[in-house]
Structure formats: C-alpha cells, structure tokens
Design a protein around this nucleic acid. Sequence first.
DNA 1: GACCGATAATTGTCTGACAATTGAAAACGA
DNA 2: TCGTTTTCAATTGTCAGACAATTATCGGTC
Lengths: 250, 250
Amino acid sequence: MRTELDSDRDYSQQIARTIRDAILDGQLPADGRLPSESDLAAQFNVSRPTVREALKRLAAQNLIRTQRGASGGAFVNRLGFDEAQEHLVTTATLLLSMNRVDFETACESRFALERACLPLACARRAPAHLAALRAEIARQGTEGLSDEDFCASDVAFHRALVDAAANPVLSWHLAGAVEAMQPLMNMITFTARSRARIITLHQTLADAVAAQDAQAASTAMDALAAYTLELGGQIRARRARPAREGTSAG
Amino acid sequence: MRTELDSDRDYSQQIARTIRDAILDGQLPADGRLPSESDLAAQFNVSRPTVREALKRLAAQNLIRTQRGASGGAFVNRLGFDEAQEHLVTTATLLLSMNRVDFETACESRFALERACLPLACARRAPAHLAALRAEIARQGTEGLSDEDFCASDVAFHRALVDAAANPVLSWHLAGAVEAMQPLMNMITFTARSRARIITLHQTLADAVAAQDAQAASTAMDALAAYTLELGGQIRARRARPAREGTSAG
DNA sequence: GACCGATAATTGTCTGACAATTGAAAACGA
DNA sequence: TCGTTTTCAATTGTCAGACAATTATCGGTC
C-alpha cells in the first residue's frame, strides 16, 4: 500500500497528521501496534528517519509509545487521566507565562472554576476526601515549612477538594488550572500571619464540606480568593518599586 | 558547551525535555532563535538526526516552529490562546473518547464549569456579548436547520456566554470543555420540541445575563443542564435496545 | 520439564551526503 | 551613486546504509 503525500510539504508532519487522525477516528485501537518503521517508510514512500520524526511527534503528544526489541514497535497509547493532566498543565503553564496573564486574571479563573466544584464536593465528599483535607491542613501548620512546601500542600488541599466532587473530568480541568498557577503562587513569600489566615480559611472550607453546607463553603472560597488576590497585589507592589529604581527606561 | 545526558536513555527525549524546560523557565524568550541543528548536535554530543527528533517533539507541542534557509532555524513559539485551545480540545476529546467517559460525567463537568462563569458574565457583559447571544438564539430558530448546525450554534452561544465573563483564561478552559463534548452532543437528534425548549432556556439565560441577574441565570443553567442530561438519557436508552437485539453476548 | 544460548525482529543512533529554501552579500549596469 | 541581478552561504528537509541495543522466540541441553 502506497499512501500519497503532497509534495513540497513537510513529509513528517503530514505522516504524523495521517496517523493521528487514524488514531482519533478509532481506526487504530488503543494498545494496537503500528507497522514497523521500515514498513511505514515503504508505505509512505519516504525514508526511515522521516518516519521516525513523524513518530516522535506523536510520541510527544502521548499518542503512541515505542518499545524496542522483537515484537516491539509503536503502540497506540491509551491516554489516561494522568498523562492528559500533565499535558494540560504544560499547556496552561505556557499559556500563562507567554501571554503575560496577570495574577488577577489567572486567580479569578482558578477560583471561579473551583467554586463550581463546591456543590458537588459537598454532596458527595467521602471520608477519605475529608481525611485528605485535614491532613494537608495539619501539614500546613508544621513549624519550619518552606514556602515551596507550603505551596505544594496548598495545591494538594485544593486537589483533594476538587476530587471530592467525584467527577474525574472536573478534576482533570481543575488540576490543570491549579497547577498552572504554581509558578505565580511561588512568587509569594508566606509570612507566619498569612499562613495562619490561609489555614483558618482552609479549615472553614473543610468544615463546610464536611457539614455539606455548600453556601458556607462558597463563602469561605470567596474569602480565600479575595485574600489570595490581596497577597498577589502585595508582591506586585513590592516588585514594582525595585524595578523602577534598578533599571533605566529604554 | 557540552551538555551531559544520561546514557542508556532515550537521547532525543532528554534533549527535548531540556529545551522544553529552558523555554518554560524563560531562558529562551518567545520568538528567540535556537542554535542550529548542527550546533545543538555538537552541544549535546549526539548526531543531527537525534537532535532533529527532539526538535520534532517540541514542534508537535507547538513550542517551536522551524524555518528553512539562511537566518532560518528553530524559533520559540509565542503560544497564543488559539493554538493552546486547539491543543486543549484535542487532549480533552481524546480523553473523553479513550476513557469511555459517560455522557452524564462529561455533561456535569461542563455545566458545573459553565455555571462558574455566570456571575462574572452577568457583571461584565458588554453589548457585543449580548448581541452575539441573541444572534445565536435567532439562528437556532431557523427553519430547516440541520442537527449539526444546531449543535454548532449551541456551541457558539455558550462560548459567547463564557466570553462575556471577560477572562481569557476562563474562556480557554471552557472552550475546551464545551468543544470536547461536541462528539457526544452530535449523537443527539434534536426534535422540534426539544429545540423549542432549548431555545426558550437560552432566551431565559440571555435575559438574565442582560439583566445582570446571576441568580436567575444560574437557575436557567440548571434547567438547561437537567434537560441536556434528559436528552442524553433518551439516546442512551434508544441505543441500548438495538444493541441487545443485534449482537449476541460473547 | 526447566534452564540457557543463538537468532531474528525492531527501535535507537551514527555518518555522510544531497536537495530545497532563503537571506545577504557581491557583482553589475544605468 | 543607486538599483537590480546574480551568486553564495547557512540552514533545514530528506535520503541511504550501517551498526548498536534490546527483547521475544525458538532450539538445544541437562
């Protein structure tokens, strides 16, 4: 079988698109094996390095995985939530950093989405979720915790909160939104006072979810959003001053 | 400069990760030019084809673009919202299709996220947004509109609704959620009665946003979500019967 | 029957080369 | 001197053939 390609175009890109579409259409089932590189090269009438470049494109999108050895080859990946999440986070992080999205916008988006999960989380939270929430709150109160670890625990708290909604698609979306904000959140240096306040808000939030009180949870979330914005505004103000002193316009 | 790589590992993958991280860290600015393939090959102490495979991985993620000719090379892409959205939709579509996510879960996720936009949309909606909403509603009432076009208009309506929140990050997330559901929505055959009901609900929603009544908008959204779920349940029931007749258990 | 080595298939990588493209410098003419 | 054309050099895209690394499978041996 010879598959025709447009000449004067990027072969490897065309091949990658062809195979990708075949996967999306379901012509190649998950865990199915693609023809060997040599066979593909013969089919598309190109050299093996060109086929390999196409396969690497697909591998970068987590669409296939490759395995060496006899009975090796390229296999269609069953895209799991974990890999998809990694992808989402990468894209979201890049989007935020390369488009100079301001802290306020990213923050607003993140908390708006998270607030959407609260009613479901209140309705469905299981003991395991509540335990996870409490565990992270306890960790956040640890003496001598670095800012980085505090942020990580914060992320874990919010992910547990979202997971309580028991909707994997929702969790996927939110995980992307929350994790993509990590670089922005890491700029904040958490003083003892701000930590205490955040922990209190987390506690209120956890209590509301435990009590299945969506209204109270939403209120607590609003307060947390407002306080996060306030902290963000502080660092921005602190950054604006040295910049004006240190650099000359031009 | 020689950059060390782990041996007994996939070189092209390591190189891709290294460059990707450099881009994410901002060491390589947007529209900045990477060293030539030969230079990169020398730096990483590998051959040019290996470097090329790494670059193709990055190109597949829209992180770089390549250009031939003198003063050509690989350039860091400024990842715009459009490209990022395309990426998000691809990933989300694949996620839904490959993990057999049921209609209820996807639907719940989508409407929960969309509901989160309503307060902001009510607060900030501009005349242009309202006009877009009304235009789509008018289109949905067109005689002889195909199911596909009706779906497309539905997507456009909801995107306009989200855009009214005037938060690009939020719009990005929602566009992914809404568009990824298209394949599932396209299964529904919209009868005249169901169309009329949906249009009424859209009208209620648009009116509430126009009146900046977030409470009413949320109620309308709930009704729309419930009705969409009902329609989805109908097609599932309709599908279950022929399946039982046509296939033998095996 | 269990264990072990040869074998074949397949991906990963290297070397060297040529084609295609494109910007820039050099040559040329007015 | 200015503008046009030609040439050139840098860079990516592709090819061909080869070898190394890995791994399942098939035989052989104990």
